[in-house]
């Protein structure tokens, strides 16, 4: 263990000497952040929230016989939830904020 630490330190020093320091990479494993991945993820989040909202509205309407009012309300709420999901996807410092408490 100690040997490894020493090696890491020497490697760090050597890198610093030669101007090859690594940028401080976040060590956390994160969800991959390629442009396609993010775009696809955002789309899926919106669609799934919308589907859940519309599904709940439709089911409640069939149950209570209030077609189409709850469907319309849940459609709007589902859209809002989709936007919320996308916001959560891009909200900066999410992990840090959680870890601090």
């Amino acid at each position: 263990m100690g040997q490894e630490d020493g090696f890491d330190k020497r490697l760090e020093a050597a890198r610093a000497r030669n101007g090859m320091q690594r940028a401080d990479e976040p060590k956390r494993s994160e969800v991959p952040n390629g442009p396609w991945g993010v775009g696809f993820r955002a789309g899926v989040e919106v669609v799934s929230a919308l589907v859940v909202g519309v599904g709940i509205g439709f089911a409640l309407d069939r149950w209570l016989g209030t077609w189409p009012w709850l469907f319309l309300v849940m459609f709007v709420l589902g859209s809002a939830a989709g936007v919320l999901n996308v916001y959560r996807l891009f909200r900066p410092g999410r992990r840090v904020e959680i870890d601090s408490d």
Binding site: V47, S48, A49, M74, G78, A80, A81, L84
Partner: peptide, 21 residues
């Protein structure tokens, strides 16, 4: 009345987005 349903829908949309992806 707005936030709670939106949060519930957002929570329930998790399995859907997970599976669709």
């Amino acid at each position: 009345p707005i936030i709670i349903p939106v949060e519930i829908v957002s929570y329930l949309s998790r399995p859907l987005s997970l599976s669709i992806r």
